[in-house]
């Protein structure tokens, strides 16, 4: 698992007169946790939206290299990005299916695999053994995830009734049930307390180690970012202002300027 997994080149996104992302290039290594940080409004979520097909970028290329095939995510529709390129994401505000059970949330994420197993409905309709086996596997996989995030006893409750921290973890588990090669997490630690965010760190490191999934992370919580990232990309006003290891980024004067302002401005204020 080495080499570049995601390569963003000259990405530009304009909304009318506003340039949200301006000629941004960066790459994420396979097997790494790459963090995108930056002040509010720097364009982090817009980058995610371009990667996952919500926005069609004005310019640029987003290449995902998987199994010696390369997908240009900028030219693919949302469900194809999930089902063919195997990129999954979570949202800043939790978007579970609140009126489906916890278990169903994890099974619906395996829709594609079941779809193929069912020979596009035919085998499923007649309950052929191959399809039943696929369905059993889907349930087993979901159970495995429930054990890892400690929600086995809530499996049959509606997802909307879980507390916030548990919903976060369920959302991450659901994204992983799609078998992604790249998981994009939009502020996974937002709204979590210190203990929960430490748990999240462990979960994310465990995901990288045992599932071999590369992570792309937007986060404001510096404990999370500095604690687990291999590589950090810093954005400000849609431009990349720094790029490197956590230590290098922490010491970079451009980053300090973006977060704290110019020294003069601070003094005069």
């Amino acid at each position: 698992m080495n080499g570049v997994l995601l390569d963003v080149a000259n990405l530009t996104m304009r909304f009318g007169g506003l340039t949200a992302i301006d000629d941004l290039s960066f790459s994420a290594q396979a097997g790494h946790i790459t963090a995108i940080i930056g002040p509010n409004g720097a364009g982090k979520t817009t980058v995610f939206n371009c990667i996952t097909g919500f926005y069609k970028p004005t310019l640029g290329r987003i290449a995902l290299a998987r199994d010696s095939a390369t997908f240009d995510l900028a030219q693919m529709s949302g469900h194809k990005i999930a089902s063919a390129a195997h990129v999954a994401r979570t949202f800043q505000n939790i978007r579970l299916f609140p009126r489906m059970t916890v278990l169903e949330n994890l099974i619906v994420a395996q829709h594609n695999k079941l779809m193929c197993a069912s020979g596009y409905t035919i085998a499923g309709l007649f309950g052929l053994p191959s399809y039943r086996k696929a369905e059993r596997n889907a349930v087993a996989k979901a159970r495995g995830w429930l054990e890892r995030i400690g929600l086995v006893d809530r499996a049959d409750d509606e997802a909307g009734t879980l507390h916030y921290g548990a919903q976060r973890k369920l959302e991450i588990a659901r994204a992983l049930c799609t078998d992604p090669v790249l998981l994009c997490l939009d502020e996974p630690a937002a709204g979590l307390n210190a203990r929960e965010s430490a748990e999240l760190n462990r979960l994310l490191l465990d995901i990288r180690a045992t599932d071999g999934v590369s992570l792309l992370l937007i986060e404001h919580d510096m404990n999370v970012v500095m604690g687990i990232s291999d590589h950090i990309v810093v954005l400000d006003y849609g431009k990349r202002i720094a790029n490197g290891t956590p230590d290098a980024v922490r010491a970079d004067p451009a980053v300090i300027r973006a977060y704290l302002g110019e020294p003069d401005a601070v003094e005069s204020a």
Partner: peptide, 16 residues
Amino acid sequence: RACEQDQTMAALLGID
């Protein structure tokens, strides 16, 4: 049911 509750999310999970 997934599409009923959140179409964009359903699409992101690979549902057509």
